[in-house]
Write a protein that binds this DNA or RNA. Structure first.
Lengths: 148, 148
DNA sequence: GTAAATGCAAATTGTTTGCTTACTG
DNA sequence: CAGTAAGCAAACAATTTGCATTTAC
């Protein structure tokens, strides 16, 4: 279901891929656009979107559609787990430590669906958002919204 | 961090909540809007959005931000796991069967984040999308996109 | 009676697409 | 030199917001 190489390696595609791979931050398309723009000042946001699409189809990167309202991208295409900050939408990598192992996929039952990937997304809070909540103390009203 | 009751129980809010609770389908805002409209023909989509927001802040429903490009909502606010169809974005409930137990949250390490909820999101394929893929056979090009 | 919520429409935001030109293989 | 990809702008889709009016408490 994946891993066909992209057709042409243009300068833009190569640089987009290089910059994404340098990051562990799972950037959104426009965050990456800003970064790529330092090396390719005339690149367009549309090109970034198109290439991220192509690269994720070919399995070179991961498209994290399940990351809130904005899509995020991961330069590491290996299967691994993620946490998503419920405050700001940021995504981090999660590793399983100690002797813990996840139950096999057969242990999860869901009618009408077949689970194809055992990669999980946890819900959490990043340090920045946690600090913000702590400061706000008995936070005035709706301080728990999702922005980005 | 949650469970303050909404301020006023308007007819719209009550009906939106009732209809959402009847469903197990994790509808999007506009799917629910269409349903609610049968009982409240003059309701507006904005009102549906506003109420889904308020109800999820108060902990009466779940907002599944991690459900692809469109947010989905769950009338069951208890912690439970979800599968998201990578084909169409639909979301289903997942239950853990047999003697399987998830590792405790301490067994997951993620720098800069604290995991607050152990509810997981799996990636899968719903029956409809699976059938579609099967029919397409050696599917011509990019047949694995997310639409909804 | 008053603050909160509605309906409607317009504004925002994130993403995709059409088209002409440029460049890779 | 053939066809894929870029750049740019316009189109789209999902969600949010401003405002005048209505309604729950």
């Amino acid at each position: 279901m994946e891993a066909k190489s992209p057709k042409r390696m243009t300068k833009q595609r190569r640089i987009i891929l290089e910059e994404l791979r340098k990051l562990t931050s799972h950037p959104t398309a426009d965050e990456l656009y800003e970064i790529v723009r330092e090396r390719l000042p005339r690149v367009s946001l549309g090109t970034v979107y198109r290439n991220l699409e192509v690269l994720s189809e070919s399995g070179e990167i991961l498209k994290l559609e399940s990351a809130g309202s904005q899509k995020r991208f991961d330069g590491n295409p290996m299967d691994h787990h993620h946490v998503r900050c419920m405050g700001c939408g940021r995504v981090g990598d999660v590793e399983v430590v100690g002797d813990a192992t996840l139950p096999a996929l057969e242990n999860f039952r869901c009618d009408g669906f077949s689970i194809t990937r055992g990669t999980l997304e946890f819900t959490g809070l990043c340090d920045a958002c946690k600090d913000k909540l702590d400061e706000e103390g008995a936070m005035p009203e709706a301080a728990t919204q999702t922005r980005q």
